[in-house]
Design a protein around this nucleic acid. Structure first.
Lengths: 335, 335
DNA sequence: TTGTAAGCGTTATCAG
DNA sequence: CTGATAACGCTTACAA
């Protein structure tokens, strides 16, 4: 079962009776080629079933037509993290119809140098860095050398340099709290996320803004680390601090789920005694009882947008340095 | 901001005072090179921060050091399907420390030809096809030309040809049913999956085998399509057929979740009146009330194993044509 | 053990 | 508008 040798550009040239240069032009859609000749070449390509060799092409053109998608190892280890899965899905679907190839690469501490060199070694035309909630832009240094687009707002310095696509967390939080207010809640607490992660900060800010703008005194704040357990603990503390809380905004669904437990333990009914709204619209939100009102993040869209921005960057086209994606309030039974 | 030209193998050779061939040998770990020389070359590589150009390398060697991961488009569109996410995670983690690059590619009907040519065009050294529950091996034809490893048992003809890694569905089902029997259930029904998908078939078979082997008359069977709604409908039918069912094995967690609804509607208590066990150990299983007893599939491990088998195939090493992965019974509150 | 030199399949620069 | 003819950076017989 010998594999037939793949036809080369040269063979096409011979078959069509033109030079290799001409075939190359046709393949690359150069306008400076006689229509008739082009047609003939295309016919030859068709009959020979020719497909250009990527390696040769990128060696000669200095473009790899490849895009790296970098995910932190920690994330890759999480069991099917829906955030990453969705973002990557968006990237892949967006790039599928283009000529770009997607190189999935894992950023692990131990291989940091290897990864850097891979990226800088001309193996890819650009990189997409998905940094979950951490705001970690340790790859920012690459930006000067290689087009890079980040997912999530960068934290701290270097922020001004990089291109990124993010979800408008503050706005989402404001909408969530606004919904609580609209439904008559007046003593609204929050279970905030870690303050060293942009989403943690922004969602807390949004909560506070919505309240002060509405002329309502912000309720108590407790912090969690985005896990259900931390949410339960935070809710318990909140309850201990103030029994009259009638609404709580959790910075993510998992903490909201944890809050449910603490609430149940305290004999509080959701939403009768206290309304709760989460953030993410993860699968937790539908499987809880009562189903959780939450803020949906357009994760797939985020991946797609990142890919679009990167493509523009690679092609030298102007691109927005920061793209904010809108969230959406999903009202369920918890409010 | 000019990007410093990447160092080439030639520059390393000059720096180390040897020929390019020698540097190449060192880079590729050839044993026929003087240790001292090799060391010197490595030092030069280090100081120059040299990283081999992939395109040139594969052009010259006819190996791409790349592996394609093919996912059906339908799956990619599902919201963060945990099955795919986990399998891919396994693949990526397994391949990360190797020199293989991972090319994610989506198999869409409209681009089938393009994908085929990409795979056959020498762009990758092998391919991993993740075909969820469908058993679709339409890519089997590639096997003759390119090393390919499938995820999931192939359906029908061509099965004998291809390499694949699968979860032992029948055994998992037997264990699930065995657990039901062990806990005293005697009238055990099943909500089976589609019979045109290997897992659907195998899990039904396992259910039947466990029962007959235990000398228990198999209970009624109803079919679903792996969705929660279909599970609810199937459970309702089951109840209508026989009120005395005291145990049910759902071919996946989602259908088990659906069954919960039908059971609640019928005033049945889980697990007092009827025990239910699912399959997959998806996140649904923990968020239900009561938490679902289920069979865990080693999805991440499946991806890793697929990668391992493919690597062996590419390197011409002997590899098992079929690898069966063991499942695990996870006992929770529903039984 | 090491070096020489001929490619690998395209693109790109120049002439024509 | 088309055709030579160098690169592109690396691997690999073949020699030495």
């Amino acid at each position: 079962m010998t594999r037939a040798k793949a036809p080369t550009l040269e063979m096409v040239a011979a078959h069509a009776g033109v030079s290799r240069a001409t075939v190359s032009r046709v393949v690359n859609g150069s306008p400076t080629v006689n229509p008739k000749v082009a047609e003939a070449v295309r016919a030859s390509i068709e009959t020979l079933n020719y497909v250009p060799n990527r390696a040769a092409r990128s060696l000669a053109s200095h473009r790899s037509q490849a895009i790296a998608v970098v995910v932190p190892e920690s994330a890759a280890k999480l069991f099917a993290d829906p955030f990453f899965a969705s973002v990557i899905q968006g990237v892949v679907l967006e790039l599928a119809p283009t000529d770009y190839t997607i190189n999935m690469i894992i950023e692990s501490e131990s291989q940091a140098a290897k990864t850097r060199r891979y990226l800088l070694g001309g193996n890819v035309d650009g990189a997409l860095v998905v940094s979950h909630h951490t705001g970690d832009h340790s790859w920012a240094a690459l930006s000067g050398t290689l087009p890079v687009v980040f997912g999530g707002r960068p934290l701290g310095e270097g922020a001004g340099e990089s291109y990124y696509v993010d979800v408008d967390n503050a706005h989402g939080a404001r909408v969530a709290v606004g919904h609580l207010i609209d439904t008559g809640r007046r003593r609204i607490a929050t279970i905030a996320g870690p303050q060293d992660m942009p989403p943690g900060v922004d969602r807390l800010t949004g909560w506070r803004e919505a309240l002060t703008e509405a002329g309502i005194e912000p309720g108590p704040v407790e912090y969690g680390d985005f896990t259900a357990d931390s949410g339960a603990a935070a809710m318990a503390k909140l309850l201990r601090r103030e029994a009259e809380i009638d609404g709580v905004f959790a910075a993510n669904d998992q903490m909201a789920v944890g809050a449910y437990q603490a609430l149940a333990a305290a004999g509080k009914n959701v939403p009768a005694d206290i309304a709760v709204v989460g953030f993410d619209d993860s699968y937790f939100s539908v499987s809880t009882d009562p189903a959780l009102t939450t803020i949906r993040q357009p994760m797939v869209e985020m991946g797609a947008e990142m890919a679009r921005v990167l493509a523009r960057l690679i092609e030298g086209a102007p691109a927005a340095q920061v793209t904010m994606l809108e969230t959406e309030l999903i009202v369920r039974a918890s409010t």
